[in-house]
Design a protein around this nucleic acid. Sequence first.
DNA 1: CACACATTTGCCATAATCACGTTTATATTA
DNA 2: TAATATAAACGTGATTATGGCAAATGTGTG
Lengths: 249, 249
Amino acid sequence: MKSKRVLIVEDDEVTAMNLKMSLEKQGYDVVAIADDALSAKSKLKIYSPDIVIVDISLQESDDGIRLASYIREKQLLPFIFLTAHSDDHIIEDASKTEPYGYIIKPFDPASLHVTIQMALYKYHQEKKRNENLDSLKVDKLNLEKLLYNKKLSDKPIVPFGDGYHLDISVCETFYNNKKIKLTKKENSFIRLLVAQLGLVVTFDQAISYVWEDDGATENSVRTLVWRLRNKLPTDIIKNASGMGYYIED
Amino acid sequence: MKSKRVLIVEDDEVTAMNLKMSLEKQGYDVVAIADDALSAKSKLKIYSPDIVIVDISLQESDDGIRLASYIREKQLLPFIFLTAHSDDHIIEDASKTEPYGYIIKPFDPASLHVTIQMALYKYHQEKKRNENLDSLKVDKLNLEKLLYNKKLSDKPIVPFGDGYHLDISVCETFYNNKKIKLTKKENSFIRLLVAQLGLVVTFDQAISYVWEDDGATENSVRTLVWRLRNKLPTDIIKNASGMGYYIED
DNA sequence: CACACATTTGCCATAATCACGTTTATATTA
DNA sequence: TAATATAAACGTGATTATGGCAAATGTGTG
């Protein structure tokens, strides 16, 4: 296996150099060192590293955490936090970004290696799972979670489009608080669209989620969309040519 | 916050004692030390710790990993791996259990604390999300609340349909103040329909609520609806094709 | 930019399938 | 024994799959 490319984001030069030396001794390729979030972002693009080590408290601010959130959101890379503190609320904030690992200063070279390996592996698994999700499987549970994350405060309601909402506890769609009678498959597809609000639902996804084991053709999906569009008062189901359908966020 | 209860699963006495001391110095309560997976399982039950630290390679086998899988499956607790190796396939196996954290030997007391905090937080988040998903299901208690919220001022009466009302204190249904004699299951189903007035009661919901543990088929639900419709003077139970039944609000 | 060409989409009629309501026979329970 | 609940069967209507076709969209070329 060729050596992994590491980007270090650390404003303290001494720590950064220590890290770099330690990593290089273990066969890693430290491609760059950034000392703030901004340069980190540009260096991410330039060097395309395999993993990023981020100091949690860049310039005494929460820049490190925000950088991590950014990376997590874009699903670019695995990242590891480097921290000296064990301040509980920093830990809490850091945990929210779901880091792939963390190293506590002063760091130990051996544990550094293991942590990186674990992070890389974890990222690899996650990526594989996401790929599966993209191309094929969106299982019920997964979808429920997606929908749940979109729900409004304590009510099981997910608003979408303009005047629409979905009651996720009973699987029903409303337009201006008026129920729209939908059949099983129509409902199923709306749920999928809303779970991925703003994202395209591919034909494959639709087929595997709505039709489960019995397959279906792309034409079936098209006809389903057609029927749905007839039942919905406004035209919110958009087509992404060659890909599938989506509802705008 | 009261001190967190920790269970250590480690067959090397020296490491175990080191851990214990280190943890106690930081205010943790080490409730027990187990030296194999079996005793770990029983001690889990006896001491109900808040978190478990598991040595990844108990007695040179993969017991640690299997113990972790067991805990993960039962969704009992957060667990942290303790490992000396950086052997890639052990890391791979360990990662599959999605540990809440890991500590590399020789461990550093400060990082131990941070790792535990992160693990506890992560577990907390996970648990909260699962609970919220569960709360979307309708159980007896939930239903009573729904009904209670619908009742008329201070009287235990819930009106529905046109001329109907349900007395939730005695579980009886009336049409124009005339009692309608219903059987146990019919009553049960009417309550469910009224609790979700305007919303569809799915077959699954009906089956799990009316039939509880003894299952039933969709056909049973259909026949139940048929019997109910015969007893109710007007046609208020509507069908949502493929989904279930509902009464309009 | 215009043009031809290929692909994809929306729409529809038709056929196949599925779900519903209903009935009857058979269990289960009080 | 009467009342209640389930299971299987079946006609009917609702829902869905399928293939075709025109319109829209995208692509490559001169």
